[in-house]
Design a protein around this nucleic acid. Structure first.
Lengths: 136, 136
DNA sequence: GTGCTAGTTAGCAATCAATGCAGATTAGCA
DNA sequence: TGCTAATCTGCATTGATTGCTAACTAGCAC
């Protein structure tokens, strides 16, 4: 994800306005490795800006995602998580505490897939399930 | 997933009762490669047994899953899908029509993972996104 | 075959994530 | 400084799933 300053430019360039709410969310997401849910981010944002709406958080995250600045990740735990890391990477989830970490997988593009039957593959998501160092 | 007959035994062996509803669902899921959602299965079941409850479908699928006879798969499309194939395999999803197919991936256990940081991996789910032959 | 009882079912309420909507507000240009 | 389209908040709504409970029944004991 771009820096808050760059995002400000990018939003204006797209005819979108830059509001204090959006700037706060830019800052909260930039470099964030927590993979927060919309609700978690809403809580964080509410500390610095009481009264901000959960709706606005969803809105802004969706905008960022459709601009390719965020990636949505679904670890199958109810709520979607947001990842400002848009590099080619994948995730490990701790089955115990739900913690999610970024991991880099060598050879993920050269996997031998059997049974495609005419399917053409555009992208690959690999999710590793396990336990984190603390929960092990 | 075991055959309906074997499942009947397995259920009784676990102190669970074998009802007509459950037998119907055993049959509908056995060898089913459609990866149905609970709701889709409910519709199918309702044809043969009008009045069956969606609740019962969820219940039975959950029971089967916790007995290891079914695998839950979440392709990030709202509803969870159920897969009677419990082999070591993965999935492709058509982004256009939502169709899901089983695929077999060579070397999925030997992936080089960077950034684990103390995480220990128990299992791996690989989801390929693309377009099916019809939608391409 | 009859009864008993724990396990099941149906149906509806409740929860949780996410989106739709509308009136009040505001960023950013003229 | 004003204007207007974009945005914000707050609330209603949708969709998937689970919780709850009274009525029902599988399957064992007699």
């Amino acid at each position: 994800m771009k820096s808050p300053t760059e995002l400000t430019e990018a939003f204006r360039a797209n005819g979108l306005k830059v509001t204090p709410q959006r700037q706060l969310l830019f800052r909260l997401m930039h470099g964030n490795t927590m993979h927060p849910t919309a609700d978690a981010l809403f809580s964080e944002a509410s500390v610095q800006m009481p009264g901000i709406s959960l709706r606005t958080v969803y809105q802004t995250l969706t905008d960022l995602a459709s601009m390719g600045e965020l990636r949505l990740i679904d670890v199958g735990a109810g709520a979607v998580r947001f990842d400002p890391n848009v590099d080619d990477h994948h995730h490990v989830v701790c089955q115990a505490c739900g913690d999610v970490r970024d991991v880099y997988v060598a050879g993920s593009h050269e996997l031998r897939i059997d049974g495609l039957n005419g399917f053409s593959v555009d992208s690959t998501s690999i999710l590793f399930h396990g336990s984190c160092a603390r929960c092990a």
